[in-house]
Amino acid sequence: MSIQHFRVALIPFFAAFCLPVFAHPETLVKVKDAEDQLGARVGYIELDLNSGKILESFRPEERFPMMSTFKVLLCGAVLSRVDAGQEQLGRRIHYSQNDLVEYSPVTEKHLTDGMTVRELCSAAITMSDNTAANLLLTTIGGPKELTAFLHNMGDHVTRLDRWEPELNEAIPNDERDTTMPAAMATTLRKLLTGELLTLASRQQLIDWMEADKVAGPLLRSALPAGWFIADKSGAGERGSRGIIAALGPDGKPSRIVVIYTTGSQATMDERNRQIAEIGASLIKHW
């Protein structure tokens, strides 16, 4: 067993022997301040990774656009098919120029040779490549099948209805392509620590998230040296922004954090800054 596999296998073990965790309302004060600064709703939840206990939450059962955070769930569904012998990570998928959609920095470079399922998941999570996500959605049967996968996990809230990039439209009061912070946090925890996926697939999923290259201005910008984070960000229309993450000190994750916002007129930089400040408060009061 590799060191990384050992780390993920012992996530519940280490967490069980940690000192009790206590909620700190100071972080919620910052979440509410972010709402004021952005002029928009902000949803927040913080779960203990081992027990699933909610440590703090704000608007945990209000719907927010998922945006690209759905790509972690998508690759979880792909990995479940791999575990069941219905898919192979090494299978190569070929596609054409007509398949390319807006923001496809990886797939646009491989029109000639195609990409493997493993490479597509890596591109979808680490670079948020939209064509990679659409190609992977095709392998599982489309958005409705991802929703069905989530329902089978016990998540009857999260739903995907459309493809990239239309799913980022974020129309107010439109339930399409949305989740709730509580539902997303619980589902992410199941994917990373539950028995739904094999140990190898859980490790692969967290490795992809740990290698995320496009979430630097968010929670990662607030992390002290030595902290662990595996995350996936999302951005959408109407001032929408979000991030889902597993993080913790001492090089291992111990909490799940989900943050979503929508309806702001603020710039992307300002949305990023507010999420980073929430992260800084979380870490300060850990």
Rank of each mutant, 00 (worst) to 15 (best):
L167D: 01
L192W: 06
T193C: 13
L55P: 01
T198R: 10
V29L: 12
A230E: 01
G194E: 08
R238S: 10
I140W: 05
L79K: 00
D48L: 05
A123T: 06
E270V: 10
E210K: 12
V82P: 01
A215P: 05
D83Q: 09
P172T: 10
A183Y: 15
R162S: 09
E102G: 08
K252N: 15
A84F: 10
L191F: 09
L74E: 04
K30S: 09
L89H: 07
A183L: 10
M209N: 00
L135R: 04
H24E: 08
S96G: 11
G226R: 08
Y95K: 00
V31R: 01
L197W: 02
P253Q: 06
E164V: 00
K53M: 14
L205C: 02
P253T: 11
R273G: 12
M66P: 01
Q97R: 12
I229F: 04
H285T: 08
T107H: 02
I45H: 05
D155F: 01
S51D: 15
D99R: 08
V78D: 00
Y95M: 08
M127E: 10
L160F: 06
F70S: 11
A245L: 04
A123Q: 04
D113T: 11
N50Q: 07
A34R: 02
T262K: 11
L100R: 05
S240R: 00
G154F: 04
E277M: 07
T126V: 07
Q203C: 05
D48W: 02
E26Q: 15
G234D: 02
L205H: 00
P253L: 06
I278H: 02
R81H: 09
M67N: 12
I243Y: 07
A170D: 08
G226H: 08
V78I: 15
H156N: 09
W208M: 12
F149V: 13
W227P: 00
E164G: 01
V214E: 04
A148D: 10
R63G: 04
M127S: 12
S201R: 09
T179Q: 00
Q37L: 10
I243W: 05
S128C: 02
L120W: 01
L74Y: 01
R81L: 08
M268S: 12
T116Q: 10
E87V: 10
T158K: 00
D269L: 13
D212Q: 15
G226M: 10
A124Y: 02
N173Q: 09
R273L: 10
M180T: 06
L89A: 13
E35F: 00
D99M: 08
G242A: 07
T193K: 14
R63L: 11
G76Y: 05
K53T: 11
V214N: 12
L160T: 13
R159V: 13
T178C: 12
E108V: 15
H156P: 08
T116G: 04
M209V: 00
A246D: 03
N152H: 13
L73W: 04
N173A: 11
E46H: 14
P249K: 14
E175L: 11
A132H: 01
K53Y: 14
T147M: 07
